[in-house]
Write a protein that binds this DNA or RNA. Structure first.
Lengths: 201, 201
DNA sequence: CCGAAAACATACCGCTCGGTATGTTCAGGA
DNA sequence: TCCTGAACATACCGAGCGGTATGTTTTCGG
């Protein structure tokens, strides 16, 4: 049972991942279709066979790559943690130890958010939807923390969650511009101090 | 004393402002030179006479427009305020009442920050410099507030300032994607709650 | 008043890039 | 086996855009 020379599913996957990497690095608008399919090891014909246009490719990347990416890296770990704020703090600590190249990539969702005015309405709606899902889940996690006693009782869940999403995107976004890693460490330390102030006790 | 039909200084000014508006709206890379000089009411010849290239025009826009823009809207007001945190809160309150179009523009500095990996080294250094200047001034303001008794004594100035810059950029950036103004109001409310927690008393 | 340089306008070039049209190969069912 | 359609590859097109070359007008100093 040798791997078939023609594997449509694998080709589609390669294209999605290549497009994700390219978009993650250069943004959606400035990402070149040329670099995408050459990175995937195919030609332009494959792109327009599996996806009808660059926009449709972008939407597929968002739905099938970006959404799971944000889900499993930011939403799910906090949702599944016994102590939501503690999990957030732990994940924040690991942020400054990224390489310069990783920092320059930023958050794929955050990049799209900043780019969203230049995208069409359908795309913007999806970006906003993912953002809203994150906020909603985080608010639920904060409520759960309040019931469990790990989050202070006077914390407003919806407001805090909305601010936290913005602050986290701001942190990762800021990391794209700062060459000095100390500045990023300072910002992370400030954010951790804020998170600590939300904890009960 | 009628205005001269040929006014180089005015033409240069028009070009700078037009380029700023266009970059503010579409980003630096995707901003079209065509739209810039047509918005300024001149032709391409004027651009390449006053500025040598698109990159040099961009740098001039940053130095002569973006820097003063951030200076007088975010840095100076807080620096000149008796109560730094109070001034920040006041400015935050006025953020949700922006029109949808204004929100979609975002912060010119924040946009450039997110775009910075795609820019050349000289440009990135300037963006980072402005960012650092903002952080430094904000840290000094926090120190001043601590001496004046309006900021809690246990606030770490450098860390808090770095986080605040990131959070503010995140807030304004988030406003570009959210269509529902309620989400933005929530995030602003969460940020104000954080700022209040930094105040003494 | 005149000439030269500044201050633009106009026309054009060449490259990039998204998109298309067409050719070619492979895989599976009748 | 054959034939049809999927799964690509290749070649090409046209628009947009940064940049340049050149022409034209204004301004200003001598």
């Amino acid at each position: 049972m040798k791997p078939p020379s023609r594997d449509p599913a694998a080709t589609r996957r390669q294209l999605l991942e290549a497009a994700f990497a390219e978009i993650h690095e250069h943004g959606f608008r400035t990402a070149g279709l040329d670099a995408i399919f050459s990175r995937a090891g195919v030609t332009k014909g494959a792109v327009y066979h599996h996806f009808g246009s660059k926009d449709q490719l972008g939407r597929a990347v968002f739905d099938e790559v970006v959404v799971p990416w944000v889900e499993e890296r930011w939403i799910a770990p906090v949702r599944d943690a016994a102590d939501p704020l503690g999990e957030l703090i732990a994940r924040l600590r690991r942020l400054p130890e990224r390489t310069a190249r990783e920092r320059a990539l930023g958050c794929p969702l955050g990049n799209l958010v900043l780019e969203s005015p230049g995208l069409d309405g359908v795309f913007r709606a999806r970006v906003e939807g993912l953002l809203a899902a994150w906020r909603t889940q985080l608010a639920a996690d904060l409520r759960r923390g309040k019931r469990a006693g790990s989050v202070r009782a006077d914390v407003a869940p919806a407001e805090t969650a909305a601010f936290l999403v913005a602050a986290l995107e701001g942190l990762v976004g800021l990391a794209k511009a700062v060459g000095d890693p100390k500045a990023l460490e300072h910002a992370v330390a400030g954010c951790i101090a804020y998170l600590r102030s939300l904890r009960a006790g």
